[in-house]
Amino acid sequence: MLISTFTFAQGVITGSKHDFKAALWNTGGQICITCHTPHNAIAATGAPLWNHTLTAATFTLYTNLISSTFNATTTQPGGTSKLCLSCHDGTVDLDAFIGKAGALSGKITGPALLGINLSTHHPVSFAYNTALASSDGGLKDPSVTPAVAAMLFANNVECASCHDAHNNGPVGTKLLRATNAASALCLTCHIK
């Protein structure tokens, strides 16, 4: 039996900002291969069968020196954030997949380029737990708020807590996991 479409994965990314099947540097013309592979995957935390070269950058982090109300301790991005940053930090070529070093396409530019200074962006790679919610006073407790717990990766806030690389739905811009009309996405975790 021939299956013509795979709506469980491809149907969501098709037509999205991460649909690179027509990019000149994607010579295979496949949608998933720029990030995922069925064979010889790169070991990457939080990624099924990862295929894109991981960033080796050292990032400037968001800290309590930037905001006196920030009570968490950030660490160098790991897990799903490192996967996102492997393109969005601008240090790895877009076509650095399938074991290639890249260079045909160059690095990401424009508004999607976050760079290695993460101190001006929402903090990522920090533990979000009952202790943090209690000490902060402006955060919902993930142990009693299922919507918050569902956004965490190994109990951490990561890029994918708010963004879905496979999102092509009506949610809106910036691949948000949910609408942010009236700050709805922000208010999933924040009560202030």
Rank of each mutant, 00 (worst) to 15 (best):
A47V: 12
A47C: 14
P48Q: 11
P48N: 11
L49I: 13
L49N: 15
W50V: 13
W50P: 00
T53W: 01
L54Q: 15
T55G: 07
T55Y: 03
T58Q: 09
F59L: 03
F59R: 02
F59A: 06
F59Y: 14
L61M: 10
Y62T: 11
Y62E: 09
Y62G: 08
T63K: 08
T63A: 06
T63N: 10
L65F: 14
S68T: 10
S68A: 13
F70D: 03
F70P: 01
F70E: 02
T74S: 14
P77V: 00
P77L: 02
G78S: 14
G78M: 07
S81M: 04
S81K: 06
K82T: 00
L83A: 13
C84L: 11
S86L: 04
C87V: 12
H88K: 10
H88E: 07
G90P: 05
G90A: 09
T91M: 02
D93C: 06
D93T: 09
I98A: 12
K100E: 15
A101I: 02
A103C: 03
S105Q: 13
S105T: 01
G106M: 02
I108T: 09
I108S: 04
I108H: 01
T109S: 13
T109W: 01
G110Q: 06
P111Y: 03
P111F: 02
P111H: 08
A112N: 14
L113F: 10
L113Q: 15
L113S: 14
L114S: 12
L114D: 07
L114Y: 04
G115A: 09
I116V: 15
N117E: 06
N117Q: 06
N117D: 15
N117H: 05
S119V: 03
V124W: 00
V124Q: 04
S125R: 01
S125Q: 13
S125V: 03
S125K: 02
F126W: 05
A127Y: 10
A127R: 11
N129Y: 03
N129A: 11
A131S: 14
A131T: 13
L132P: 05
L132C: 07
S134V: 11
S135A: 14
D136P: 04
D136F: 04
G137N: 08
D141R: 00
P142H: 07
S143T: 12
V144G: 15
T145C: 01
T145V: 01
P146N: 11
A147Q: 14
V148D: 02
A150R: 14
A150N: 15
M151G: 13
A154E: 07
A154Y: 10
N156K: 15
N156V: 00
V157G: 07
V157S: 05
V157N: 01
E158D: 10
